[in-house]
Structure formats: structure tokens, C-alpha cells
Write a protein that binds this DNA or RNA. Sequence first.
DNA 1: TTGCTAAGCGGACCGACGGTCCGTAAGGTC
DNA 2: GACCTTACGGACCGTCGGTCCGCTTAGCAA
Lengths: 204, 204
Amino acid sequence: MAPRAERTERTERADAQRNREAVLAAADALFAASSSPHSVSMDDIAAAAGVGKGTLFRRFGDRAGLIAAVITSRLEPLQRAVREVQEQTGYAPRQQVLDLLDTALTFKIENRNLMSAAEDAGISSPYRAGHYGWWHETLRAALDRVPGVHDPDFTAHALLAAIRADLVTHLIDERQMSPDGLRSALAAHVADVLGGSPPEPGRS
Amino acid sequence: MAPRAERTERTERADAQRNREAVLAAADALFAASSSPHSVSMDDIAAAAGVGKGTLFRRFGDRAGLIAAVITSRLEPLQRAVREVQEQTGYAPRQQVLDLLDTALTFKIENRNLMSAAEDAGISSPYRAGHYGWWHETLRAALDRVPGVHDPDFTAHALLAAIRADLVTHLIDERQMSPDGLRSALAAHVADVLGGSPPEPGRS
DNA sequence: TTGCTAAGCGGACCGACGGTCCGTAAGGTC
DNA sequence: GACCTTACGGACCGTCGGTCCGCTTAGCAA
């Protein structure tokens, strides 16, 4: 009976790591390329990554888990950047909210097919997905500090709803709206929600 | 000989009509009862309605068509009522928008499981579904008449996004928000969006 | 009532997909 | 190199949306 090695985390075997990365890259590429998430099957991803199907499910549990992992890997650098910027002192809350939503929108525009896949794979509520919770919590915290916002929790939900992946896809890919046009429309909308008053130098 | 109904359009055979109604009723009941739309299969609906599966697809084309038909049958009276009310003269545009969204939200709360089913059956964009177009167009028209709204089209999308079925479901069924609490949160949000500055001078 | 016709019915059947299982391969360690 | 643990991979399974086609029956006319 071997004494239990005190490994706080088990190290990942070399082939496992290689495969994990291959799968994430393949999935990302396939979702980015196809307009409808439904047309990307788990078999497709496995084949594109050059691994067996069992490997997918062993590592990621199920389809939703795989998509979540892809998103996490894309989102992590962004999250770090957001956290850093937010820790700056003298960052006006109002501007913080505007920047946060613009960042989120830009991310969703760039990864809209992937994000659409996430929305309909989160059987059947995107609101359970981990990354949504992070966006909501971060936005709510920022809204908390903006004077005149009565219900930061609901407001955060409402604002995030305005940039849901399928709406973004609809406006850009079907209604031919330009990314920048969408960004400024969103900025105007957010400004309305935060109250007609422009950034006041009184509080910070 | 019984006077024949005018046959300007092809009359529906008696058994066909009976079956159509049975299917719509069965589908409505099943979706209302189950929390996850995915757990209601076409076979379930056929069985509950006491018809064969072929009948479903013959009449409604596919799953999305069936769900759309159920929604249409639920929505029609509401649409008529909305149209009537909106034709009243002296109906302040601002109030019109508030009422419209409250009506839509109430409808979605009452039929939230059905509406959730619609959202994920509209492979994969709810924005193509006919009923969304109607809500958007109606709301946009009302927003057009509210002074101070810069982009009625996008604003209509953003406001409708705030009452998407899965968000409503999340807030009520998982976050334990009360329907009335949600309605007033929405009303406050809409008021913010319409601008702190109502037609009359003075900030809200 | 009877006979005719076409609209409608229904369930066996199909292909695709998400997910499982288990015999086999290979990395890590001594 | 021996041994053990971890991971691999693809055959396999159950379910589901959707199709097909032989059978039933409503509706009509004489």
C-alpha cells in the first residue's frame, strides 16, 4: 500500500495536456467558423483535434463543459486585465461601467459564434454558466458605486441581456449593423440607464 | 341541407381540426408543466394529444413550427388587445412603452416555460421567430414617439432583451424574485432608459 | 345507403447526435 | 525494464427529430 503522496494537485500527464490543448483549439476554430453551433458535433471536434471521442468526454464531462472550457481559456486574460484596471484609484464608477460593457461587447462580437454555442448548450439557461456569474458580479459591483442606480442587481442583468450573443449575431450578421455602430448604440443605451447626467467630477 | 360556410379558403376536415386543437392544447400543457423544454419530446406531445407522430409533423412542419403555433394561439388575443388600446387618442407614448413592456413581461412570466422552449427551438435565434418581430416593431413604433430616445430600434431590442424568457425564469424560479418585484424593477429600468428627463422640464 | 376519392392518419423506420464502456496504449517512477 | 497508474479511442447505446407509406375515414354525389 503506497503512502499517499501529498500532492496538492495532481500533475497532468504530457499526452493529456497536449490533447487538452488540441481539443480546445479545434473547438474554438470550429465554432468560430460555423454560423450555427448545432452544426458542430462532438465527433467533429474530436476528429478535428485528432483524438478519440472518449477523450473529449473524459476531460470535459459533456458538451457544455467543453464549451465552458473554451470560453474560460479565451476569457481569462481579459478577466485579469479587467481586474487590474479596476483596481486603479480614481477610476470613476460611471466610466468603469461603460468600459466594462464595451469590453464585454467587443469580446462577444469577436467570439460571437462561440458565445452563441455557449448560450444554447447551457441546458437551457446561460445564467448558470460560470462566466455569466463573473460578468454579472463585476458589473453589479461597479453599478453599486454609481450614484442614482436604484437596483444594481437587476440593472446588471438587463444591461448584460442587451449584449447577448444571439442578439449581437442578429444585429451584425443579419441586420448588417457595424460593430462600431453597435458599440456606440450600446454606449448611448448605457448612458441613458445610468441617468442623463454626464460624468460629474464631484465623486470618484 | 345546412347552409355551407363560404369556402373562400379550403375548409379543414373535422378530424384534422380536432387533432390540431388537441395537439396545441397538449403541447401547451406539457411545456407549462415541465421546467426544461428539452424534456418534452415530440413523441410526448403526440402521445398526450392522442395522435400519431406523423400528424404533428404534417400539420406543423417541425418542432419550431409547433411551438410557434402554440405561442401564436396564446398571443393572438393579447395582440388584439394591445392594438385596440394603442389606437386610443391621448395615450402618452411614454406610458405606452411602459404598458407594453409590462404586458410583455406579464405574458412571459405566465408562459415562461413555453417561451423558453421557443427561445431554444428557434435554431438558434429567437430573433427570427415571428412573434419577436411583432413585439419589436410595436415597441419601436412607441419609442419613436417618446422624445429623447435616440435609437428606437436598438433600444427596443435592448429592452426586450431584459425580459427574455430564460432571464425571467432565472430570476423568478432560481433567484426567488417575485413576479411583482420583477415588474417594478423592469418599470424602473424602463423609466431610466426613457430618460431622466420626461417631456416636462426637471430631472426625475 | 352506397360507392368513390382524396385528405388525413399513425407508427415503424431512419440517421444523427450526445454520452458510455472497456480493452488497450503509453507516460511516470523506481 | 518492470510495474502501475492514467489516459486513450472508437465501438456501442438510447433518444430524438423527422420521414415514409400503407391504411382509414371524412365528405360528397347519385
